[in-house]
Write a protein that binds this DNA or RNA. Structure first.
Lengths: 244, 244
DNA sequence: TGCATGTAATTGGTTGGACCATTGATCCAA
DNA sequence: TTGGATCAATGGTCCAACCAATTACATGCA
């Protein structure tokens, strides 16, 4: 038995081929996120494959978040796609308990501190303006609605991640955020959550604007610390209620 | 126009429902990675859906790396699946190998530093022994094979992540590691890669053993810095070669 | 008996065609 | 102009058959 690995023959890989062809097509047409791509029926005809095969390929892209399918309207590009893209599926065991949230928060602390520091180093003037804009929106929402500004809060942070120059940070923290919120939608006790973190948004922005990476990192750590304290406070209250 | 967000009605979500049912099934049967799951035809019959729908659902799981399909033999579980799991595909814009690697490295710097610090705080004596053991294996491999100790190196780091008390770190960095290696299999020029990082493994261990979280973090940052330098060196050499 | 070979059953992969559900555009009437 | 009805386009589902790879089994030869 020789150990030569003869032609790793490509017997069947129809949908892989379809995806490859589609990636090429997207690049040739220079399609941007949000653009609509051809109908499944048209793709099937053009590529000389069954519509079902096209659907399996698109399903894979949909699962990877590269594409969004809207019944009745069409299929739309959701993220930039290049032929040589790397996909790294990440599965996080999401528990709905205190421990899981603390774990996600630990990861977020690591990522947020680094992202903020990188942002302070790399961000350009227009990105800085955007961050400032998001900050003011958030502060206004905070004052007018007395503390409930989670959506605006999130957009502020996202603007920072985007300005960090590394898209991985945004993707990763978005995952953390989603897991966090799946828990948070059912308000489990902590009132005024995020209230304590409010002032640090502005200090973070100021350190970034001053190009002070380490200062920004320090402020980000303070912010995470307040969230962590909120979380512990909620857990303690829940334990106490359980004993009563 | 009121801004109430009415129920995001769930009109059709057949394949989502299929995946949910499948996740439940996997958990009830306590299927482990490697186990075979029911035939597509059987699933279709049991769930009262078309085989086609089952396939679309499985295709999504396959894309996320949760499942492996082998024509002729069956579909096999590839990773642990629990109903409330978060599957997050990360997409890294390929094309420029160097830039992608640097991005993963930035994330790794953030995570590694935090994991090492947490490890210094939380690790128990037996976990510490394991880390020490892995360290010695790595050092011996390094000396006997003159620098090629990537596998043992990785196991050393893994032992640290496990001792950090937060499984998220291991999962995240494992994903980074895999992506890193996908590039590295094609040796792109840098000889003695990882050579410079060698001494810091022991210093990291020493700081952990001394329960010195900040010291451990500092040493971890030094280690990542050497890897980064190696990377830059390789890139510079490649650019120079291109110009010649 | 033991092993090889061929045959059948199993299982994922593909096809073509039909119909349903949602969306958006178009047209018509009040 | 506006409101509603109609219709075409498009993704979602279903069915039934067949292809391709794998596995299990039977058959037969040494």
């Amino acid at each position: 038995m020789s150990k030569v690995r003869l032609p790793p023959i490509q017997t069947t890989a129809r949908d892989d081929a379809v995806l490859e062809a589609l990636a090429d097509f997207v690049q040739q047409e220079t399609l941007q996120p949000g653009d609509k791509l051809p109908t499944e029926r048209i793709l099937a005809e053009r590529l000389r494959v069954s519509r079902n095969t096209v659907r399996e390929a698109l399903t894979r892209w949909e699962g990877l978040g590269l594409v969004e399918r809207l019944q009745g309207s069409g299929t739309f590009l959701k993220a930039a796609v290049s032929p040589h893209m790397l996909h790294m599926p990440l599965t996080l065991a999401g528990g709905n308990d205190f421990a899981s949230l603390m774990q996600t928060l630990e990861v977020r602390r690591a990522l947020e501190a680094e992202a903020v520091a990188l942002c302070a180093i790399r961000t350009g003037p227009q990105e800085l303006d955007l961050i400032h804009h998001k900050l003011e929106i958030m502060e206004e929402a905070f004052h007018s609605r007395a503390g409930m500004s989670s959506e605006e809060d999130w957009e502020f942070h996202q603007a920072i991640y985007r300005a960090s120059g590394n898209p991985l940070f945004e993707q990763l923290i978005a995952a953390m955020h989603e897991m966090f919120h799946r828990f948070w939608e059912h308000p489990l006790g902590v009132r005024d959550f995020g209230h304590a973190s409010f002032p640090y948004h502005r200090t973070i922005y100021e350190r970034i604007a001053a190009r002070d990476a380490e200062g920004a990192r320090t402020e980000a750590l303070k912010l995470i610390a307040t969230v962590e304290a909120d979380l512990r406070r909620g857990e303690a209250a829940r334990n106490q209620a359980r004993q009563a």
